[in-house]
Amino acid sequence: MNPLKLLKAIGFWLLVVVIVVYAVFPFYYAILSSMRSGSALFQVVLLPEHFDFSNYIAVFAEQPFARNILNSVIVAVSVVAVSLFLGVTAAYALGRVSFRGRGALLLMILAVSMFPQVAVLSGMFELIRRLGLYNSLPGLILANLILTLPFTVWVLTTFMRELPKELEEAAFVDGASPWIVVRRVFLPLMWPALVTTGLLAFIAAWNEFLFALTFTLSNEQRTVPVAIALITGASQHELPWGNIMAASVIVTLPLVVLVLIFQRKIVAGLTAGAVKG
């Protein structure tokens, strides 16, 4: 290897290391901090010295954090289920049947995904209060649909359009109804797309903050992001950073694991949703 080539290789690997450290260090440091309490927390260290789980215990003892996690799971799972159901049925109509106004409808759905959340905030607030859903999980599930439904429909429609035409024709000739066709013919083929969109919808609902902050009042109805944002200590200037880091790690670890497992599917879904949409 000549010196210039060696220099180039070193430069490249240095860049790779910098990227990895930059991406991972903040989460690593959060894990590190979550296992330090008392005055140890205020000394900056870069390597773990001991494992102290008292912050993790404190998070659950000092506020209804288990309840918050359950709330987040209920909201996110319901949002995913409703979005996927509505998304699959709509995608069949939009992807397989040509009718007048289909293009306009798709454009409208795309437009909804561009809405700034705050643009519907006061209208949604009013709606939720009128339906008697203020400070309740169904209210949050309803509100979150505006975030997940458009891209679910969009990605599933793109996917459904690609499936071969002969599939459903054979079933129709056999006298199957459209509902049967969707359930028996398309659904089994759509698992990859359902996993991708379901995951993206889950992450969107799990991370949602503005609606959850505005439409809930009591600690028992809050989802995880709001609960973490509102963790306070004895005074406003003494945030319990150890607890906050522990809570952050608890809610992030499952997400990071999910993302790493489904890496390829998520990348495919993200780029499909963005490049084509």
Partner: peptide, 8 residues
């Protein structure tokens, strides 16, 4: 970083 909630 993409997987980590904004609040976190």
């Amino acid at each position: 970083p993409w997987a980590i909630p904004t609040i976190v």
